[in-house]
Every structure is written in structure tokens, then in C-alpha cells.
Design a protein around this nucleic acid. Structure first.
Lengths: 187, 187
DNA sequence: AGCTTTTGGCTAACGGAATTAGCCTAACAT
DNA sequence: ATGTTAGGCTAATTCCGTTAGCCAAAAGCT
């Protein structure tokens, strides 16, 4: 039996891709094994189990999201930065719903957990957006939570098909960006 | 064997309570059966299966949320109504995370699905909030989606322990209400 | 009351998924 | 060459959802 040349990264990456395709809830060890060309138990040589796999996917997703938002914000400030960050985040979630779903509800086990590091990177990217507005120091945390809630809420509702009625979703999102920009300016 | 006197409503209600206690993902047919004092297969006399149970819980949750928000909004307008609605919604999600989780990702099968009716009731309650602001007709949909995204995002992040760092969560939420009120007024 | 029908329990059994144990060999280091 | 390790595999266990089929309790009739 020739070896498949797998390692943890390969397994996690394949798992993330599969989660995007079939949905995180339908991501099964058997399906993943088939995808990477191996029998199910062999996966356990590379990941600790389903929970560990999920954490791996979450780390990957947070890192990718942080990169996407970070790049989008570069060289922009104020409303431009806000719009670019929000669009980049939403695009990531819509294109990678499975990966993103893996990030929900996972908690870093400690300060050394790579999950915490990647989460902080994503947060930092959003913090950079706020630098373009004049916000009192104590309000930065609140504003950050608002941005996160808005982006998370909109993106997850959209990817769960939660917006049923008529109006165009992209249009709503642009409206939402304008609304937030106005609010942050007037704060 | 004496009968347990179950019916669909009792099973669904117990399922909702159990989901709140142990988390929707850990809600298992066996656990629910034990809770209601019956063997697992007996549950299938009352609900079609896990998916049907989930829909039942979702209908229940949407109805309760609609009631809570609806009551909160009565007799209030403008900022008062907004604050009351948002607080009621968040309180519901935080107190009933399992129930609420059941509402995410379920789609009404048709216009007669009770799920659609309860969803609409909840939406209507939020729409009532917007009547207190002067919003151009075409913007009402967008504003509604924003409200929903904000409330959903904040509440789910909080109940998933997604806010890790320092600042007080309640304070952030009040800040968020003030922010939204200002924005809707200036729209 | 007695009979029948429907309803709501139960046990038994199946299938699918996660996981563990234990084997066996390819790849690699010496 | 040879010994070790890492990465496959099969087999077996467990747990969960679900279905089939039995049997008694409740409810409805006459």
C-alpha cells in the first residue's frame, strides 16, 4: 500500500474545503477520509478526532479571514477602510460558510492556543478600521463589538438564507456600511 | 406499562428545555426520551424524527421571541421601543440559547408552514420599532435587516462566549442601542 | 358491561458514524 | 543492511437515529 503523503495541514485543509462544499454539519470523518484517499481510521494519525479537526479548521479560517480583512484595510482609512473590511469579511463568510461555521463556539484553551492568536489578528484588523474615526478610548471596545456583531450577524444570516423577503441583499449590506459610517462619525 | 401522557407539544417543550440546558448539539433522542420518562423509540409516536423535533423547537422559540419583543414594544416608541425590543430579544437568546439555535438554518417549507407565521410575527415586532423613526419606504427593509443582524450577531456571539476581553457586555449592548438610535434618527 | 379500534408504550434489530486496538510495511536514519 | 518510526490497514466497539412489529391501555360503540 503506497503512502498517501498526508499530514495534519493537508487533512485540515481538505476538511475545510469539504465543509464549505457540503456544510459543516455534514462533514464526516468517513467522507473526509474518502476525499483524501485513505480509510477513516488513518485520519486519526493526523488529527485527534472530530473536535480537534474542527479546531484546526477554525484556526485556518480565522487566519484567512484576518488576512483578507487585513489586506483590504491596507492603504485605506475612514469610510473606505470600513467598507473594504466589511465587504472582505462578508465575502469570506459567504464563500467559505463551512470554514466559518467551524469558528463559532470554539474557545481558546489558553493564551498560547493558536486559536487565540488568529482571533486576535482578526480583531486587530477591525481595530485598525476604527483608528480612522475619532472614538473615545473607552468606546473603542464597544464599537469593536458592534462591528463584529454586525458583520457576524449579517454574514451568518445571509449564509443561512435568513433573509427571505424581497430587497437585494448586496444593497442592504451597502446601506448598512453607510449607516455605520455615519454613526461612527457622529459618535 | 402505564402511559406517560405525552403529546407532540410536551415532547417539543421538553426538547426545547433540554436544548437550553445541554446545548442543541448535545440534544439527543435518547436523552430526551429519558427526560420525559419513556424509551427512545416511543418519541417517534409524537415527532417525526430529529429534524421534525428541531422544527418544532424553532417554531416554539420564534413564537416566544415574538411574544417577548411584541410585549416589550407595546406602549413605547422611538428610542424607548428600540431599547426595549433589543433588550427583550437579547434576554431571550441568552436565557434560551438552545431553543434559539434551533431557529438558525431552518427554512419554512411553504407559506403555510407555522415556521413562516411565527417568523413573520417576530419580524413584525421589529418593524413596529421602525415606525417610530422616519425612514424612507425603500429603506425599511434595509433597516430591518440591520436590526436583525445586530441583535442576532450580538446575542449569538455573547451566548457563544465570543466576547473575550475586558469591557462589560451589558454596557456594550447599551452603547449599541444608543448608536443605532442615533443612526436611525439621522438617516 | 362487553367488544372494537386507535393510540402510545415496548423490545429487537439495522445502519451509519466516531473512535480504539492492534497489525504490518514503507520510509528513513544509521 | 538493518532497526525504528510513522502512516497506512482491518476488525471491533460503542453510541445514535430510525424502523418494524408486538401488546396493552384508553376511548368509543352497542
Amino acid at each position: 500500500m503506497p503512502r498517501a503523503g498526508l499530514d495534519r495541514a493537508a487533512v485540515v485543509t481538505a476538511g475545510a474545503a469539504l465543509a464549505d462544499e457540503v456544510g459543516l454539519d455534514r462533514l464526516t470523518m468517513g467522507l473526509l477520509a474518502e476525499r483524501v484517499g485513505v480509510r477513516t481510521p488513518s485520519l486519526y494519525k493526523h488529527v485527534g478526532g472530530q473536535e480537534d479537526l474542527n479546531r484546526g479548521i477554525a484556526v485556518l479560517a480565522l487566519g484567512e479571514a484576518a488576512d483578507a480583512v487585513g489586506v483590504a484595510v491596507q492603504g485605506r482609512a475612514g469610510r473606505d477602510a470600513l467598507a473594504a473590511a466589511a465587504r472582505a469579511f462578508r465575502a469570506f463568510v459567504v464563500e467559505h460558510p463551512g470554514r466559518y461555521a467551524a469558528t463559532i463556539g470554539v474557545e481558546p484553551s489558553g493564551p498560547d492556543d493558536p486559536l487565540a492568536a488568529e482571533g486576535r489578528r482578526l480583531l486587530d484588523a477591525f481595530t485598525a478600521v476604527l483608528r480612522g474615526y475619532e472614538i473615545a478610548g473607552s468606546d473603542v471596545d464597544h464599537a469593536l463589538r458592534m462591528l463584529r456583531s454586525l458583520c457576524h450577524g449579517f454574514a451568518t444570516l445571509q449564509s443561512a438564507n435568513g433573509f427571505q423577503w424581497s430587497a437585494d441583499v448586496d444593497e442592504s449590506f451597502e446601506w448598512l456600511i453607510a449607516f455605520t459610517d455615519r454613526g461612527l462619525r457622529a459618535g
